[in-house]
Design a protein around this nucleic acid. Structure first.
Lengths: 337, 337
DNA sequence: TCTCAGAGCTAACGCGCGTTACTGATCGGC
DNA sequence: GCCGATCAGTAACGCGCGTTAGCTCTGAGA
């Protein structure tokens, strides 16, 4: 910048004014054009670090993924999530950092990101139902948007309507005549999404006047393998279910495998419905009935929200809940058939 | 920091020395401990921006993904790649930024990342065979590691051995008795990976004394849908292939669908082998024979390499080629059966 | 002729830190 | 009792930029 100033025969201040297009004051059009030309000729690019230091902003937000190595690598929606985030962030001039924070590790690792001014705000993925860490961060004034709801409604969050989605899934099974319906969650019930999907399951049953049987409820742990054992447990019950609602397509893969290993057939012997609508669902045999999770939209909304928070705009509503959509394929069938 | 200095009754310089553990000079152990304690009490965290400005480093690298929106969202390996990268980068104190750069857009968007000192180095994903942009960047001295080889061997890159992997796949088919073997690539042949996999395909055929038939060669475009039409074209040939090597499992999904739509069966009527080993491959019907792509390892190596480049260490070899592994499942079968 | 307004530009400060050059105090050796 | 050598600590500069206050010069009005 100093070089540009020297080459154009003006002061560094003038260069700053010219490049940043300071209104109609202080700089004549002639010299402005001259400065711009010199800057272009010298291939000048401003130093972001210095700019950040003086503005106090980094124009960077971190996506904090609270998953273990394996869960992280197996995340089928990370790419969609990131795509959605970038669609919202890049036009506003923000950049995206990805940060892994193992769930059991001392949580303060990502707190430092904003304390040290490395990022302006945090997007936190798959939060727990009750996470004191997040509460603390928010109360400190850290700009945060959760990807997934918690039980604290004042903290900005965007999530799919898990209760509703699960309800619709289970109602679909009930409409097909099933009354003994099992559930394998996507994750332990410390995670909000699992919790809400379980609630939706319970509600749909209750609405239909079906008594919930706790022996029909098991939990997965994000991965495909984690669906295998719970499914076997369900099949080995004295009175096994005729349909199963699995809280995640990925977990359903393991469940389907378990069913196959017992020589049972889907949907003939057992209906299975998943959740998430992973891209390969329609290529499975049978194609998997599921609840669509609009992952790109989630990212887009989360991105838009963190931008608003960072700008200081007040949010219309701190929590946003996106609708799901039932996708009926061939893994569910009427019980009477 | 100034506050810490004031609270400890020393100069800011002393604080800097104490916190950064400057060797055994200039600061007494007593005051050092006092300063550290005050810093802890005041919950002091250094400002990364200022630190970056003075050190000239950002400790950040960008993962540049040259894909369109849809290709990006459908990338089954992005999460594994990122996981591997972070395993290599975080212990070294580096952070990871994700940046989308559409292939046809004016390529200089990501050049600015390093010109403006937003990041120290670039990891460029899925490069073209010949990309003048990358050549330019490297010649300018920009720290770069390619994820995927180009035809310029002096630019650091890490890739799976695509030629070898494809060769092994096709040899497997030949060993099963197939001689009329089709190929649908993972992407247009402007991409290096597609190109090399095609070469491997050709070499395996040549080695077996089989004449390549150009009508058997088609190209996909990353997505599952892009495998559908090429497969139909192969099936509609007067003399259709008895086996197909598809350059990507994802593309193979569409191809399998096309086969099903024509009422043909895999592997009875046609053997299909994929490439990449996407996680759901084993859950397909039939489970997909494929070539394993060690995506996490790729990330880990790429991360380690960019760290070396940034440190100024000289690389043992600029290009690293990771081995693949044939995974035989049930989508391929001996022709004679 | 003097004043005053505005246009056109610059000097200088501060953002928060690492680092170099320097000062003042203490101590052992002759 | 004096001197050089260490020890403990500080003042001040610079990283590259945005920004405020102020400076100079011109021309018009009185």
């Amino acid at each position: 910048m100093r070089d540009v100033a020297a080459a154009a025969g003006v002061s560094r201040t003038a260069v700053s004014f010219a490049l940043n297009n300071i209104p109609n004051r202080n700089i004549s059009e002639a010299t402005r054009q001259r400065i711009l030309k010199v800057a272009r000729d010298l291939d000048y690019a401003p130093n972001t670090q210095a700019l950040n230091l003086v503005t106090g902003k980094t124009m960077m937000v971190a996506l904090v993924v609270r998953k273990t190595t394996q869960q992280f690598a197996g995340d089928a929606f990370l790419s969609e999530m990131i795509e959605g985030l970038m669609q919202a962030l890049e036009p506003e001039g923000y950049h995206l950092m990805v940060h892994a924070a193992h769930p059991n590790a001392s949580g303060s690792t990502y707190r430092d990101l904003v304390r040290t001014r490395k990022v302006d705000g945090l997007l936190i993925s798959s939060p727990m139902v009750h996470d004191p860490e997040i509460r603390l961060l928010h109360d400190e004034g850290t700009p945060i948007v959760l990807n997934g709801a918690t039980d604290e409604p004042d903290i900005p969050s965007v999530d799919v309507d898990n209760r509703q989605g699960a309800s619709v899934a289970v109602r679909h099974l009930i409409a097909l005549g099933h009354r003994r319906i099992g559930h394998i969650s996507n994750a332990p019930f410390t995670y909000t999404a699992s919790c809400h999907r379980l609630e939706g399951y319970r509600k749909a049953l209750a609405d239909a006047g079906i008594l919930a049987d706790e022996r029909l409820i098991h939990h997965g742990d994000f991965t495909d393998e984690s669906g295998y054992a719970p499914m076997l447990a369900l099949l080995d019950l004295p009175e096994p279910p005729t349909a199963v609602f699995v809280g995640s397509d990925t977990v359903a893969l393991g469940a389907l495998d378990a069913i196959r290993s017992r020589g049972r057939r889907v949907p003939d012997d057992l209906s299975v419905i998943g959740f998430d609508n992973i891209p390969v669902g329609k290529y499975l045999t049978p194609p998997l009935t599921t609840v669509h999770l609009p992952a790109i939209d989630l990212g887009r909304h989360a991105g838009a929200m963190i931008v608003q928070v960072l700008r200081g705009d007040l949010l219309p509503s701190p929590t946003v809940s996106l609708p799901t959509r039932l996708i009926v394929r061939e893994s569910t069938r009427s019980l009477s058939e």
